[in-house]
């Protein structure tokens, strides 16, 4: 579990272009942070920075947990549950095969009802090439559940989902926060978690 994630005067540059600078925030266990901003304002870059894929041009990110503070990107990465822009699914593999693979790779718990929770129980043996965009998104959510990571980084979590799907995302997010998890989501829609938001 993580107590808090703190950003201190972060700056991010891509090549010669500055995306943002002097960005500071703190998210505590059980809280969510919505990252808002126009296209190209650096929402995805901020998430990739937190995940450790990018290194900040200035400033630092600190994770505090029971063992103390750390700004090590590698260590932080091992606490992150990632829902990216792309779903990361293979058309040739079945729904169950994908989930089993990711659970094993993450040494997560192969949660038998993860598929049921996202409403894909009946599609378990279907190769992913036959899934709709929304169903793929739901499978990506199931992967997030089995990865058992405390810090969720979500890029447009509501994208491609119908109303029921969006309600499902809201419900899963609320439960994650309720269990003491942290969520940082880049989104155009309100998260509906009584959360703070950050404007880029």
């Amino acid at each position: 579990m993580i107590t808090s994630l703190t950003a201190e005067r972060l700056a991010c540059a891509r090549g010669d272009r500055k995306l943002f600078e002097n960005l500071s925030f703190r998210v505590r266990a059980g809280q969510a942070l919505a990252v808002e901003g126009a296209n190209g304002s650096g929402k995805t870059s901020l998430l990739r920075l937190i995940a450790g894929f990018l290194s900040p041009a200035a400033g630092r990110l600190i994770v505090q947990d029971a063992r103390g503070e750390s700004d090590d990107a590698e260590e932080r990465g091992k606490k992150i549950g990632w829902l990216g822009h792309h779903d990361g699914l293979k058309p040739q593999l079945t729904v169950q095969e994908q989930l089993t693979f990711w659970a094993a790779l993450y040494r997560g718990t192969v949660n038998a009802d993860a598929l049921a929770q996202v409403g894909l129980a009946r599609q378990a043996d279907l190769p992913c090439r036959y899934l709709s965009a929304g169903q793929k998104r739901r499978l990506a959510l199931a992967r997030l559940l089995v990865s058992s990571r405390p810090l969720w980084l979500l890029d447009e979590p509501f994208a491609a989902l119908d109303t029921a799907g969006q309600a499902l995302v809201a419900q899963l997010m609320a439960r994650h926060c309720g269990q003491g998890g942290i969520i940082i989501a880049a989104t155009h829609d309100p998260l509906g978690l009584g959360n703070e938001s950050l404007k880029l």
Partner: peptide
Amino acid sequence: QGDFEDGSLDLIALSPL
């Protein structure tokens, strides 16, 4: 390339491996 394009490589990079 396949894993890079569909986003799997991000997820693999965050795994314990």
